[in-house]
């Protein structure tokens, strides 16, 4: 039996992920040549279009076959392939310690990082906490060991930093356009609008993945309780009733819609998953169906 590459992902998951890649919509790329097609024309081998020849164009791009048939010169246009920077932000606040949400965030970060490195993208990872940990930008398959070692060494924090502050702190160490994959439960009193604005203005396409525990999605509360906030130590008395849980569901869905709206208005995407769902289902079913990753 072959040894596991990492404790975060099964070997068969790794092998399936190697055939997949993240599909950004905005093509925020960098000047370095990479594997992502840029919006502008380029010098790759991927044909894009024809246009009329104008004096001064490089004669090497004239389509001589067309010229022979039509007796008019046309220039062949090609896509440009540029590198994309993948920034993975992992929320390490205390709320992520519940129901294996942080563990699921690490697994997903490993999966996204694996896909990025496999396709020679630049990858950096930031753990959002009071004392942030950071994987400096790296690229290529050779960095996979570094990636796994970094993620395996991550633990959830005992303290909590406001979300927008943590984001701004992470962006201070980041340079380059690309995609930011935000792994969090988004159960914070922080200013998400400000955080998303900062990410978008940094040239990052936001892929926000909300990870909730099963009981956060469907709480089973049947008595009078005093709820204690794990992050802020606040207390709230609630008495269970059928209607209260129904209202909870309404507000949870409305909260997710507001997060989705924040993302969409910044050309980003939002998806909520459960930490109770198997990783394979999340990766190869939910993310693929929503077009986040593909072959």
């Amino acid at each position: 039996m072959p040894a596991q590459l990492t404790s975060l992902l099964e070997n068969d998951v790794v092998s399936r992920l190697e055939r997949l890649r993240v599909r950004p919509r905005c093509h925020f790329t960098n000047r370095f040549t990479g594997s992502h097609l840029a919006r502008k024309g380029g010098t790759s081998t991927d044909f894009a279009d024809f246009r009329d020849y104008v004096p001064g164009d490089d004669m090497r791009f004239v389509d001589w076959n067309s010229f022979a048939r039509l007796h008019r010169p046309y220039i062949k246009l090609f896509h440009e392939e540029e590198i994309t920077h993948f920034l993975v932000l992992i929320d390490a606040s205390r709320s992520m310690a519940f129901e294996d949400k942080f563990a699921r965030a690490r697994e997903l970060a490993a999966a996204f990082g694996l896909m990025a490195l496999r396709h020679t993208e630049r990858l950096s990872i930031h753990c959002l906490s009071h004392q942030p940990k950071r994987l400096p930008p790296c690229t290529g398959r050779a960095s996979m060991g570094k990636l796994f070692a970094f993620l395996e060494g991550l633990t959830e924090a005992d303290d909590t930093v406001p979300f927008e502050s943590a984001i701004e702190s992470a962006l201070e160490h980041h340079a380059g356009r690309g995609v930011v994959i935000l792994l969090s439960d988004f159960l914070s009193f922080g200013d998400f609008q400000r955080a998303f604005n900062a990410l978008f203005s940094a040239g990052l396409e936001i892929l926000a993945l909300q990870i909730l525990g099963p009981t956060e999605i469907d709480p089973d509360m049947t008595a009078d309780l005093r709820l204690v906030d794990a992050e802020r130590d606040d207390r709230l008395d609630v008495s269970a009733s059928g209607d209260l849980l129904a209202y909870y569901q309404e507000h949870r869905l409305a909260y997710e819609e507001s997060l989705q709206s924040l993302c969409q208005s910044r050309s980003g995407r939002f998806l909520s998953v459960s930490s109770g769902t198997p990783l394979e289902t999340t990766l190869f079913d939910a993310l693929r169906r929503h077009g986040w990753i593909s072959h």
Binding site: R94, S95, M96, A97, F98, K101, D185, L187, S188, F189, G213, E216, A223, D224, L225, R226, L227, V228, D229, A230, E231, R232, D234, R235, L236, D237, V238, Y248, H251, R252, Y255
Partner: peptide, 12 residues
């Protein structure tokens, strides 16, 4: 009331 620690009180 029995105390129960929850991830966050945002939704509640």
């Amino acid at each position: 009331r029995p105390q129960v620690t929850v991830p966050s009180l945002v939704l509640w």
